[in-house]
Design a binder for these strands. Structure first.
Length: 503
RNA sequence: GAGCCAUUAGCUCAGGCGGUAGAGCACCGGACUUUUAAUCCGGGUGUCCUGGGUUCGAGUCCCAGAUGGCUCACCA
């Protein structure tokens, strides 16, 4: 059986035997057929004059002229001495008309051997069929790549979510809306750059491998550098490096790149994800608010043509200004509890427990506030909202609010129940920063694996003097979810992290 | 990590009360020179996720496991 199969594969069939079925075998046999006719079934470059959509859209000018395009065969309709094929390239789909009259007996017979999925280069005259479809009347064609596996069904496409994620290339081939989504994602990133570049921000690249993982509360991935013989951590945030650049005088910087967090996977979390972080010297968190709302609205309008979007059936207006509410007020609004009036930590913990929040038992009043806030924010907030003034305790890199030192000049962005970003006035007091690190280290010692580590070099940088600044981080994947109405982060990642298949 | 659900042909899916597996597309053979989910005639191509168990008999019932989805927990 195995011998027979590999013979059919022309002695070169190194495909996994487990995977070979009759459909694949039939296509392997066709490989030989093409070779027998002197055609290399895996061809070389092909001179393309047009893309499919250019021919369709530009029919009035192109009618009667000869064009050559290349793409994948998506459908085949034989009619005896003539046949229709649909081929698709990046721009879209176009119909091919093939007839014995035009191609000649030999070429026409060869054309009938094409399978759906094959990649071909074609040449012919542009015309319109009786039914009105812009088509190319083939005068010649070239097989550019033989497809050995059958494509998923044309009508339903590839529905199996697992296969769509694991074999994204197939998803892209048969589900056009998926390709459109990733084009949108690319545009989103492009317009973020355009917006920031236009305002004098410099795009930079800082290390992805950190000796001390910092800038966020999260567990990192560990790796090892052999020559240096040190452990390195995939970055959980670029923040501390970008702020070193502020010290260095790069007053407006941003970075769009990957972060890595060794935590759970869910519809909102992938182990690697993309953020844009922005730092602006001589600004503060209020400047970051207007930067945020203007940037997100600009991106939405540029990509979708409107600042009013629909997510999960809810209509959301991204037009600035967005609502601003302090965390204390938000919690008061949702629960009726005014944390400013609470006397003791114990009282706050009691309230949290009554609200069904599990606590360790040593939480402070402000930590309780934060817990209560996090428990409600994701389902309460639909329209774009800046929730401001988080407790300093949970904001170890943010500046204390002048009005009330228990709180930080900070905000989080919520839209459609999803946390989209985080920003604050950057803490530039090295003495205060060092104290914050010290208490984070204490929390870590007490068992909080996500508490920050001491970063002496970062403190030293601050000691040279960092201008006051506003900093902002936005989840690009989350923003893409929002702007493409995607319920899962996996839908906006080309290759979401999956458990490797063992079979 | 916990709960619920799913897994049947290459793809999309049906399979009542346990009786040896079915459709559409794709594919193979035939007809057809402007079709377009082409049409017409003929052909079912299978580790029913895996491993145990119950039973005369398991796609179906029970147990364990794998993978995925959703919800929760953690986070952005």
């Amino acid at each position: 059986m195995q011998a027979a199969q590999s013979q059919r594969a022309g002695g070169r069939g190194e495909l996994d035997m487990e995977d070979i079925n009759d459909l694949v075998r039939a296509r392997m046999e066709k490989l030989q057929l093409w070779r027998a006719r002197g055609v290399d079934p895996f061809g070389i470059r092909y001179e393309v004059t047009h893309r499919a959509a250019e021919v369709v859209d530009g029919f009035d000018k192109l009618e009667g002229s000869i064009v050559s395009i290349a793409g994948r065969v998506m459908a085949k309709r034989g009619h005896g001495r003539a046949a229709f094929l649909d081929i698709r390239d990046l721009s879209g789909k176009i119909q091919l008309y093939a007839s014995v009259d035009e191609l000649g007996e030999e070429l026409y017979q060869l054309l009938l051997e094409l399978d759906i999925g094959d990649i071909v280069g074609v040449k012919g005259k542009v015309f319109r069929t009786r039914r009105g479809e812009v088509s190319i009347n083939l005068s010649s064609f070239t097989l550019l790549s033989k497809s050995l596996r059958p494509l998923p069904e044309k009508w339903h496409g590839l529905q199996d979510v697992e296969l769509r994620y694991r074999q994204r290339y197939l998803d892209l081939v048969v589900n056009p809306e998926v390709r459109e989504l990733f084009v949108k994602r690319s545009l989103i990133v492009r317009y973020i750059r355009e917006f920031l570049d236009a305002r004098g921000f410099l795009e930079v690249e800082t290390p992805m491998m950190h000796p001390i993982p910092g800038g966020a509360a999260a567990r990192p991935f560990v790796t090892h550098h052999n020559t240096l013989d040190i452990d390195l951590y995939l970055r959980i945030a670029p923040e501390l490096y970008l702020k070193r650049l502020l010290v260095g005088g790069l007053e407006r910087v941003y970075e769009i790149n990957r972060c890595f967090r060794n935590e759970g996977i869910s519809t909102r979390h992938n182990p690697e994800f993309t953020t844009v972080e922005v730092y602006q010297a001589y600004a503060d968190y209020t400047d970051m608010m207007s930067l945020t709302e203007n940037m997100v609205a600009f991106v939405a309008e540029s990509v979708l043509g409107t600042p009013v979007i629909s997510y999960g059936g809810k209509e959301v207006d991204l037009t600035p200004p967005w609502r601003r509410v302090t965390m204390v007020d938000a919690v008061k609004e949702w629960t009726g509890i005014d944390f400013n009036e609470l006397e003791s930590d114990a009282q706050a913990r009691e309230i949290c427990s009554r609200q069904g929040i599990e606590l360790k038992g040593n939480e402070s009043k402000w930590k309780c506030l934060n817990e209560l806030y996090e428990a409600h924010a994701d389902y309460r907030i639909v329209q774009p909202t800046f929730v401001t003034h988080h407790p300093v305790e949970v904001s170890p890199l943010a500046k204390k609010s002048a009005a009330d030192p228990d709180f930080a000049d900070r905000f989080e962005i919520f839209i459609c129940g999803q946390e989209l970003g985080n920003a604050f006035s950057e803490l530039n007091d090295p003495i205060d920063q060092k104290e914050r690190f010290v208490s984070q280290v204490a929390e870590r010692a007490a068992g909080d694996e996500e508490a920050h580590l001491m970063d002496e070099d970062y403190v030293r940088a601050l000691e040279y003097g960092m201008p006051p600044a506003g900093g902002l981080g936005i989840g690009v994947d989350r923003l893409t979810m929002l702007l493409t109405d995607s319920p899962s982060i996996r839908d906006v990642l080309l290759f979401p992290q999956m458990r490797p298949r063992t079979d």
